[in-house]
Every structure is written in structure tokens, then in C-alpha cells.
């Protein structure tokens, strides 16, 4: 979604004092011995990062909320004896009570059950979509940035075209024709269209790393291009890639929820966006059944908001300049 929701934080992440892997420590040391000393140093650096990450309140809070929702999605359905679409599971339109923790819908479906199943589906779609977008975007960015020349021009032209395209509207047409049948297809469609800013950001980072001595040295010693990208360039921007994935994850959640809200999601399943769609369509607002639409929306907001928060925290961890301690 578009680059959907990913862009607000994504853009600021890229423009503002983003983590600057190029200036990070391993660069200089690796010059002397690109293969020997690096692993030990990288290991120390990793544990140092972990040390700061586990002491950053934003990272802790953000990750806890995400993990809590993940556990809820995984385990929640086990605590329910109903199906997510099972009608007349309880009284019609009942407020939250000890029997029905989050109330019931107008047709007597259990909101708790729907929320648990919906959270599970949301995580599934978002993780798959983020992985696909990350793969496409990073591949494009690495290749364009490292190879340069004509290939760079072509790849960036493709990226810019998809960037200008109102992606969500295109995805609507594609899904309307395809008729999404399962979460994997939905994730694939989202992933295929939601990678542009990743490609541009990764390319920019790769361009600055490519000019480094240790990359030249690796190239001189005959290391293959793929290995250079994998072992010399990618590790030096690992922090950036992690943050990219988190933003893609948050963006995919909103993207999928919006598709589901337009009833373009997988048939027969349950998701947070679909709950909102059903609540809106069956006029939960005028019926006053607030629990029907407040909980799923709050879940989406909490997950995406926590992802943004984690990202800000990680920015501080990876970029010592931003640390407040």
C-alpha cells in the first residue's frame, strides 16, 4: 500500500538520522582482514546491540505488545469452543460479560473467537507479505546498487514506475479479478506491489558501501558477486534491513486489513479487517455494539503502533548518536 501505510515512518526513517551502517565499526577493521577477524567482531557487536536493545524501553514495550498479540493469535483459538463464523454461539449482540469476554455480534458470533482467529490470520498474511516484499526490494536494491550502470537504470526505472502507481487501487483490480482464495495469495499480491521504497533505500545504502575498501579487497580476491553482497555488504547494513522488515510488517497489516475491509480478502476465513467490514456492513455503530468494532481496530492499531515504536527504539540502539543513556 502502497506502499500503503509503510511510508510515513518508512520515509522518516530513511530521511532522518537513520542508522548509518556505512560508518559503523566493522568497516574499518574488516579492511585489514575481511574474512578472519570479522566473525568474532561481529559476534561482539551483536551482543552489544542485544545489550542496548534489551535496555531500550521502546524496544521492550513494542516487542512485548507484538509478542503478546502473536501469542494471543496462536493460543487464543484454543480457549474458544466456537468457530469464528459460528452463528448463535451466544445471545445476539450481547455486551462483554464473563461468558462472552468480548461480547457477541448481531448474529451471535463470539467476538473473542473472531479476534483470536483474526489476529492469527493477520500475522500470517503480514509476515508472509513482508518477507516477499523484503526479498524483492532487497534483491532489486542490492543488484541495482552494486552492479550500477545500465542494469541500475532499468531496475530503478521499474521501481519508480511502481512507486508512482497508486498501488492499492491496482491491487484492488487484481484481487477483484483473481478472487483471493487464501492468505498466501493475499500475501503474495501485497508483497508483489509493496517493495518500492525498500529497493530505493537498500540501493542507496549499497551505493555508499560499494565504494569501501573492504568491498574492493573482496572483489580483488575473486569473491563472487553474490558472496560479496551476502557476506560483505548485507551484514554491514543488517540493522537497516531489520528495521525495514518491521516497517514492511506494519505496512502489510494495514494493507491486508484494508483489502479485507473492502471484502476482497480470503473467502471463508476471519481477519481483523473482515471483522470491521462486517461490523460496518451490519450497522454495528447505530446498533451501539461498540465491542464489535472497537476491539479489532484497536488490535490493528496496537500491532502497527508497536511496530513503529520498536523501530524508533531500534533506531536508537543501532545509532549511538540517538541514544539517550
Amino acid at each position: 500500500m502502497t506502499d500503503m501505510k509503510s511510508s510515513p515512518a518508512g520515509r522518516s526513517g530513511a530521511a532522518a538520522p537513520a542508522p548509518d551502517p556505512a560508518s559503523a565499526a566493522p568497516g574499518q577493521t574488516a579492511t585489514t582482514d575481511p574474512l578472519g577477524a570479522a566473525p568474532a567482531l561481529a559476534g561482539r557487536r551483536r551482543s552489544e546491540m542485544l545489550y542496548f536493545a534489551l535496555r531500550n524501553p521502546k524496544v521492550i514495550l513494542g516487542l512485548s505488545v507484538i509478542v503478546a498479540f502473536l501469542l494471543f493469535g496462536l493460543l487464543g483459538p484454543l480457549f474458544s469452543e466456537f468457530g469464528p463464523r459460528e452463528r448463535n454461539a451466544g445471545p445476539l449482540g450481547a455486551a462483554p460479560s464473563s461468558d462472552f469476554w468480548l461480547g457477541t455480534t448481531w448474529t451471535g458470533q463470539d467476538v473473542f473467537t473472531q479476534l483470536a482467529h483474526g489476529t492469527r490470520a493477520t500475522f500470517q498474511v503480514a509476515l508472509m507479505a513482508a518477507a516477499i516484499s523484503a526479498f524483492i526490494g532487497m534483491t532489486m536494491g542490492f543488484v541495482a546498487g552494486y552492479r550500477g550502470g545500465r542494469l541500475d537504470e532499468i531496475l530503478m526505472m521499474i521501481t519508480n514506475i511502481v512507486l508512482v502507481l497508486p498501488v492499492f487501487v491496482v491491487v484492488i483490480v487484481v484481487t477483484a479479478y483473481l478472487g483471493i482464495s487464501n492468505t498466501a495469495t493475499q500475501a503474495l499480491v501485497i508483497g508483489l506491489f509493496n517493495w518500492t521504497w525498500v529497493a530505493r533505500a537498500v540501493r542507496a545504502q549499497t551505493l555508499s558501501l560499494r565504494a569501501r575498501d573492504f568491498v574492493d579487497l573482496a572483489r580483488l580476491s575473486g569473491v563472487r558477486t553474490l558472496s560479496i553482497i551476502r557476506r560483505e555488504i548485507a551484514p554491514n547494513m543488517a540493522s537497516y534491513l531489520v528495521m525495514t522488515f518491521i516497517l514492511l510488517f506494519a505496512g502489510a497489516i494495514v494493507f491486508a486489513a484494508t483489502l479485507d475491509f473492502l471484502n476482497l480478502g480470503p473467502r471463508g476465513g476471519m481477519s481483523l479487517g473482515l471483522m470491521l467490514q462486517q461490523a460496518n456492513q451490519q450497522a454495528a455503530m447505530s446498533l451501539g455494539l461498540w465491542w464489535w468494532f472497537v476491539f479489532p481496530g484497536a488490535a490493528i492499531t496496537a500491532i502497527t503502533g508497536s511496530a513503529y515504536l520498536t523501530n524508533v527504539g531500534l533506531d536508537e540502539v543501532f545509532n549511538p548518536k540517538l541514544r539517550e543513556m
Binding site: L276, M285, I300, T301, A302, G305
Partner: peptide, 22 residues
């Protein structure tokens, strides 16, 4: 700002219908 930007458009719209409208 982070809360607002994390809010899905349809949810805020639904909340506004419910709260401001109903």
C-alpha cells in the same frame, strides 16, 4: 502522532461515525 499514524483509516472513520454521529 504515532498513535494517529498507526490507526487504520477505516477504524477511525467507524469510531467517528459511532462517537460523533451516533
Amino acid at each position: 502522532s504515532y498513535l494517529l499514524t498507526a490507526t487504520p483509516y477505516m477504524w477511525l472513520a467507524i469510531l467517528l461515525v459511532w462517537f460523533g454521529g451516533m
